[in-house]
Write a protein that binds this DNA or RNA. Structure first.
Lengths: 343, 343
DNA sequence: TGTTAGCACTCTCATGTTTTGAGTGCTAAA
DNA sequence: TTTAGCACTCAAAACATGAGAGTGCTAACA
């Protein structure tokens, strides 16, 4: 195992590199008064640490740089529990006037996170699987057009405008809304198409005329692409990092950011709690030289979303980890409040 | 004025430069069979065109590059009416199942525009000044929380979740909704706060108890920050352009893209029809070396939004202009359909 | 036995120099 | 009026050089 001195040196090297982004040399280290050893001694220890795989050199005579293994060790063992104080209460400030807007909370959180860290943050909206229908309303806008509104038990509002098929009267519309509410209230969103097919269809046949043509549009109406929404913060922040001094690097990063489905996958399969993926621990090619930190937040009732932060492997893990922890807690807190019982 | 030959040469030079992004020299030009003159002749003409300000050299012995004046002339006089065929009908394809979702249409249009051109597109949502209230609904989610929904005559749906102040019963809520609908229907959005203050308040006093504390939250509830929404397409496209080979250039561009209010201003004050701003014709520092094309689209009733495309001054104006024209028409068409009379 | 000073060596980076090639302007001939 | 020819210019690529920071190793030291 590592000696105490090696641990100490490793820690100092990583801290230094995280701050400066420049390979750290033995001489410079011994000059700082953090380490009471001569350059030569430090050199020896460095050589050992390199042999063990915690450090690397960029070329034969350069200073040392932490390896991914080094960062991993640092994250797992060398970070004390440090509480990051700033930036707490952002979400509280937003909600204490009584207005909760999901989108707004999430967007604010994403922006705060990126602003406080100078990295890029991504927040994944919650899975809606367990969300159920609270109420459905259809409102005619004109003779030919109407808007359908669906409210879920979590207070989400989905809506869609559409043109009315010919021959649908306003009383038909009323009947339809009744049937829909009758059959769909309390039903989870993902079951909507099925229930429409099996139950609503026959009822419509019974009470309304000229249904055959309309049935189809009702189905499409409520079959929303169940896309999970992504919220970004500080997409441009990453450009400030010296490791993004290369145009191709930037290109590949931004092209990934546009492939939202891939990002969703990337963030989704993170378990509970906070997870750190360093460099090649990431599956996606474009971020094999970056670190990704994910944390989950919850809306009552088990649904959850993910908060993520992307930055160079040379990331301020100490700060970031405690910050992520507190923000995910805050979000869980804020969200829980407005979640209603499944009814 | 310019001779025919000068016009011809200017056109060929600009076309060539737009395609290759490299300064074009006399020899290379005379080799192409577009121009039946020798290099020397072309050189003489080029010298004249430069003196007139249509061309520039990047250094004493380089090929010529179009100046902003050159592009301006090109756009104003040298582009024939060319109809760009591809990519038409994108929006129709979206709406022919009867479902119009404003956001979706606009987002699709933005993406199509950027994909077809390889530049970055921005679409400005419509001003809502003339939009009026169609209906308001408040739906309790639980004992403490509720969601308020506002539908406009154009089919826009705004919603907000909030916690109910203590002591508000469900019958209170019902009364409230009645009062709101009674007083606010047909009222333009921007007048809502005023009407609440002047008319709704007194009615609430009369028919509900414990109002004083609640009035405030109702006001905030319906005082939405009247932000115009922006839709982006192909933010990463611009990175493919050779003029973005410099990290600082990229930084400044993306930092502008994050200052949404500035972008709104930039796009807003464009008049009807299509407008091309080349390089320094733009007011904003960050795009003084880019070209910005804006076109307006309309939702019935005079409201309008803006479609914009940002690319290098070396832009494929021919293609872009006709494309913008047809997309803005398509959008106006699609939008108009679902607009209801002001009622 | 662990620590340190000293020295030769290595590699990057910044700077300076040379070469090459594309392009121009001008002159004189067609 | 057009074109061929030639001297000249400049940017960019290729190459050369030196300084600086860092290493590894050896030998001396506590």
């Amino acid at each position: 195992m590592l000696t105490d001195r090696q641990l100490m040196i490793l820690q100092v090297i990583i801290d230094d590199f995280i701050e400066s982004a420049k390979p750290v040399g033995s001489r410079a280290l011994s000059k700082k008064d953090t380490l009471p050893y001569s350059a030569a001694t430090i050199r020896n220890e460095m050589a050992d640490l390199e042999e063990l795989g915690f450090l690397e050199k960029t070329h034969t005579s350069s200073g040392r740089v932490p390896s991914e293994k080094g960062y991993r060790y640092y994250v797992d063992h060398l970070i004390g529990p440090e509480i990051y104080q700033h930036g707490l209460g952002i979400i509280e400030r937003l909600t204490n006037n009584g207005i909760y807007e999901f989108e707004q909370i999430v967007q604010t959180a994403a922006e705060a996170l990126s602003k406080l860290t100078n990295y890029t943050s991504i927040i994944l909206g919650p899975e809606m699987f367990e969300t159920t229908v609270k109420q459905i309303q259809v409102l005619a806008l004109s003779d030919q057009s109407a808007v359908a509104i669906l409210v879920t038990n979590t207070g989400h509002v989905e809506h869609r405008s559409f043109t009315l098929p010919k021959g649908v009267s306003s009383s038909d519309l009323e009947k339809l809304v009744n049937i829909l509410n009758n059959r769909l209230q309390g039903i989870p969103l993902y079951r909507i198409p099925e229930v429409i097919q099996n139950e609503v269809a026959s009822l419509m046949m019974k009470y309304m005329n000229g249904v055959d043509s309309s049935l189809n549009w009702i189905r499409t109406l409520f079959t929303q692409e169940q896309a999970v929404k992504l919220y970004f913060g500080g997409k441009a922040n990453i450009l400030m990092q010296p490791e993004f001094n290369d145009v191709d690097r930037i290109r590949s990063f931004y092209s990934l950011m546009e492939r939202e489905d891939e990002i969703v996958n990337l963030l989704k399969n993170s378990n509970q709690g906070i997870k750190v993926s360093i460099g090649h621990e990431n599956e996606v090619e474009e971020i094999k030289d970056l670190s990704l930190i994910t944390a989950s937040y919850h809306i009552g009732g088990g649904q959850m979303g993910t908060i993520a932060l992307i930055g160079p492997t040379r990331m301020e893990y100490k700060k970031v980890l405690s910050l992520m922890e507190s923000i995910s807690k805050e979000m869980t807190g804020a969200m829980g409040k407005w979640y209603s019982d499944k009814s």
